[in-house]
Design a protein around this nucleic acid. Structure first.
Length: 268
DNA sequence: TCCTTATGTACAA
DNA sequence: TGTACCTAAGGAC
């Protein structure tokens, strides 16, 4: 379930369980075995997230993890169960084990390689070093749709398909508007909102975007049941009535991803 | 048991 | 723009 909030949460969870310890590192699936052998016996000193990229800092080098669409991480107490053959990376110390499966990336990198990743990523609403005005400069010059720009990690890091759909809804912005038609005030408002929503996402480990006055309880409707876990306005609600105006939520393909929006609440 | 789908990205043409 | 890659769950048979 990887948007930026998930990765920042994982950075905290890895740190809480392993910082200061020298975990046993293994790769039951095999693709990370050589690196795992090198890392075993060295200390995990720090962890960090930028957008959807996770970095585990060991004494000598960094492990760079990107979950992609399918990657999953699971923690548990020791004693650890025998790993299944899809576990790419397992860390185990005296109290905790953690398994990583299905990542797009799991690699040892140097500090210079890590810096190169930071350099190609845009500002991350969850990082204190983020400067949203640099992102707006790129948005304001672009003829690309705002829906595509919000998913472009070079422009803004950490937003995925759920936050994209939801923040556009919350600000009444039609997803097909060009970046250059987004006003500074609109960008500022979306950014501020993302900072809040994503911090809440880290705390709760799920995406909730529905304002208190529109919750199922407040509106007298049944709670949402969706395996992504959170309460949302439009994401994966195609052909269901908009929580606010009742219009059917629309869906379309945009750059090979599913886009969702309310044609009445979100105007050009 | 097979098929579809998914909160992502990179690379080829 | 299309396709490849990584995994697991749910639904159709």
């Amino acid at each position: 379930m990887p948007e930026g909030h998930t990765i920042h949460r994982l950075a905290k969870d890895y740190a809480a369980a392993f910082t200061g310890t020298a975990p046993q590192v293994t790769s039951p699936q095999g693709k990370f075995s050589d690196a795992a052998a090198l890392l075993t016996g060295t200390r995990l000193t720090t962890t960090e997230a930028h957008g959807k990229h996770l970095f585990l800092g060991f004494t000598e080098s960094w492990v760079h993890i990107h979950l992609g669409l399918f990657g999953k991480v699971g923690f548990g107490p020791t004693p650890e169960p025998p790993p299944t053959d899809t576990v790419r990376l397992r860390l185990t110390n005296d109290t905790t084990y953690v398994d990583l499966r299905g990542p797009t990336t799991c690699a040892l990198i140097t500090p210079a390689e890590k810096q190169a990743i930071h350099d190609r990523l845009g500002p991350d609403p969850l990082r204190t070093d983020a400067d949203h005005t640099t992102a707006y400069r790129r948005v304001a010059r672009s003829r690309t749709t705002i829906a595509a720009l919000l998913m472009d990690q070079k422009i803004i890091a950490g937003v995925g398909n759920v936050y994209r759909a939801e923040v556009l809804f919350r600000h009444g912005i039609d997803p097909y508007r060009a970046g250059r038609d987004i006003t500074p005030a609109e960008w500022e408002a979306m950014w501020t909102d993302l900072v809040e929503l994503m911090h809440e996402g880290v705390r709760n480990n799920r995406i909730d975007t529905v304002r208190p006055e529109h919750t199922p309880e407040a509106m007298g409707r049944p709670p949402r049941v969706d395996d992504h876990g959170g309460e949302v306005y439009v994401y994966r609600r195609a052909n269901l009535p908009c929580h606010i105006c009742g219009t059917e939520i629309r869906t379309a393909d945009l750059a090979a991803r599913n886009l969702f929006w309310c044609p009445k609440c979100q105007r050009r």
